[in-house]
């Protein structure tokens, strides 16, 4: 059983929803990342999503684009990201970690070499935004052979056949994109998300995460009522960008923002349990 599957099992037993923070590796500078990941776990993260910086992040809004540019200014390569994962694992061998990024850096490293290196570093899942399953045979096989979970996006306009295909190729969880748009946009409609998740749930047993546009604790709590996992990216990355000049504040203030979401999600959960 993968760490991701294990984690969702534990959470289900406790009737908790997973909180999944996303940060871009090496943003705003490489030394910040590993301490920040540990602090995010202490603040209530159940799974970590670590962004691999890319020069042309087509699916991302301006906040994560800027994060990629800050990291790339420090030359943060895929190799460097895997080194960060290895360092993170020295102190934490239970929190699942998903790499999220674009295909080209993986393509350049080679699918087999990447899967070997990712497994050795302690990665649990890989989400490549621009690699749909029909183009993914090589990488998906390489990942699965090493017990790494390939994670796929589902969109509001993914039809039934498409959802079945994505669910068939994916492992760990499916990542539902809350709206048609880029990361961080202000377009979240929780009722709409709920309707779509219901449709998706009828087609798969995989846990369903929801991301894109979850900007604050209230939104996280609302999404937690309908999803198995709540992914928060741009809201945290925006704060990291604001604190780029004072990086020592990042490892306290960003986890504090996450902790607030954790509390809101759990409070909602407790209410439900009490009623």
């Amino acid at each position: 059983m993968s760490r991701i599957e294990q984690r969702f099992r534990e959470l289900r037993a406790r009737d908790r929803r997973a909180l999944v923070p996303y940060v871009t590796a090496g943003d705003p500078e490489p030394t910040v990342t590993v301490p920040l990941l540990h602090a995010l776990v202490e603040a209530g993260a159940d799974i970590i999503e670590l962004g691999v910086p890319f020069s042309d992040p087509m699916a991302d809004g301006p906040v994560i684009q800027a994060a990629c540019e800050r990291a790339l200014a420090h030359g943060v390569s895929l190799h460097a990201v895997l080194d960060m994962v290895r360092e993170f694992r020295r102190r934490d061998d239970s929190t699942p970690l998903v790499l999220m990024g674009y295909l080209n850096p993986v393509e350049v490293m080679g699918y087999e070499a990447f899967a070997d290196a990712a497994a050795a570093a302690g990665v649990d899942g890989v989400l490549t935004v621009d690699m749909p399953p029909e183009e993914g045979d090589g990488l998906v096989t390489a990942l699965r052979e090493r017990a790494l979970d390939p994670i796929f996006l589902i969109a509001p306009n993914s039809g039934e056949q498409r959802v079945r295909q994505l669910a068939g190729a994916g492992r760990g969880f499916l990542y539902y994109v809350a709206f048609k748009g880029v990361t961080g946009a202000d377009r979240l409609d929780v009722d709409d998300v709920a309707r779509h998740l219901e449709r998706v749930r009828a087609l798969t047993d995989l846990p369903l995460g929801v991301g894109f546009g979850i900007r604050d604790a209230a939104a996280a709590a609302a999404v937690a009522r309908v999803a198995d996992a709540v992914v928060v990216g741009s809201a945290l990355v925006r704060r990291i960008g604001e604190l780029a000049a004072t990086p020592e504040r990042i490892t306290t203030e960003v986890p504090a923002a996450l902790a607030e979401m954790r509390r809101a999600m759990d409070a909602r959960n407790d209410e439900t349990a009490a009623s």
Binding site: P53, F54, S55, D56, M58, L72, S77, L78, H79, Y102, L103, N104, P105, V106, E107, V108, M109, D130, M131
Partner: peptide, 21 residues
């Protein structure tokens, strides 16, 4: 050399880490 950008696999100008130059 070959890589993936803008929806297709093709020859690209990129650095050794796969960043587009």
């Amino acid at each position: 050399r070959p890589g993936v950008l803008h929806g297709n696999r093709t020859y690209l100008m990129e650095d050794e880490d796969g960043q587009i130059i």
